[in-house]
Simulated assay, not measured.
Amino acid sequence: MKKGLFAATLCMIISGCGVSIKGEVYEDATPYFDPFKFFNSDVKAWGIVQDRSGQLIQRFTVNIRGSVSNNNVLTLDETFKYGVGNGTLKRVWKIEKEGAKQFRGTASDIKNNATGRVYGNAMQWSYNMDLPVNSTSYTVHFDDWMWAFDSDTIVNRSYISKFGIVMAEVTIFMQKQRSTKDPH
C-alpha cells in the first residue's frame, strides 16, 4: 500500500512539473505563422532565461539573418550577445519543410534533429541540446512554442526540461527588421 501511494504521489509531482500546450487549440488562430516567410529576412530578438524559482539567469539579444534557398531550406544564422549570464555566441540552423505544416532542423549543438509543426498562428519546435553549464554539459530537452502577433512580430516561450521536469523557461520576442528600401 505504501509503495502504491508513493508511486502515485511521485507520478503527480512529475506530471505537475511539465508543460502541456495543446497546439490544436490554435489551428484556426490568425495570423497564420509561416516560419519560412517570417524568417526570410533579418530578425532582432530580445530574451530572458529564468530558473525554476523565476530568478533571471540570462538576458540576451539575438541578431538573426534568415534566408531561404531552393524554396525548401531555411538557414537561420544567429548571433547572441548577453547582458546577464553567458551562453552560445553563434548558432546556424538548417530547417527543411516536411509537408505543409511539418519541419525538421539541425544545428551543431542540437542532438539528432529538431522537429516542428505549425498550428495556425502557433508553432511548436522540439529538440534535445547539449547545454553547457559552468565546466560541464547537460543534454536537455527544449519545447519551444512560437505565436505570431502580426506579420512582423512573434513571441517564443521555451521550456527546458531534464527527466521530464522543467528546469528553466525562456521568453523571447522577435521582430522583423525592415530596410529603409522596404515599402511596407
Rank of each mutant, 00 (worst) to 15 (best):
M1E: 12
K2T: 05
K2G: 05
K3P: 03
A8H: 10
A8Y: 06
T9Q: 07
M12R: 09
I13G: 06
I14N: 06
G16F: 08
G16M: 05
S20W: 09
I21A: 15
G23V: 04
Y26S: 04
A29H: 05
K37H: 13
F38P: 12
D42M: 03
K44L: 03
K44G: 05
R52D: 15
S53A: 03
R59G: 01
T61M: 14
N63D: 13
N63A: 14
G66Q: 05
G66A: 05
N72I: 15
V73E: 15
V73A: 10
L76R: 00
T79D: 07
F80G: 11
V84Y: 04
V84E: 15
N86P: 00
T88E: 09
R91P: 09
V92N: 03
V92F: 00
I95L: 02
K97W: 13
A100Y: 11
K101V: 07
Q102Y: 13
Q102T: 03
R104K: 15
R104A: 15
A107W: 01
S108V: 01
K111S: 07
N112E: 08
T115V: 14
T115N: 14
T115C: 06
G116A: 13
R117F: 04
R117I: 10
R117Q: 05
V118T: 09
V118H: 13
G120V: 07
G120D: 15
N121S: 12
Q124N: 11
W125N: 02
N128E: 10
L131R: 03
P132Q: 08
V133K: 03
T136H: 04
Y138E: 06
V140K: 02
H141F: 13
F142I: 00
D143A: 07
D143M: 09
F149H: 15
D150Q: 15
D152V: 00
D152E: 12
T153Y: 08
I154C: 03
I154Q: 00
V155T: 14
R157W: 05
S158R: 14
I165M: 08
V166M: 04
V170S: 14
M174V: 00
K176W: 04
K181F: 14
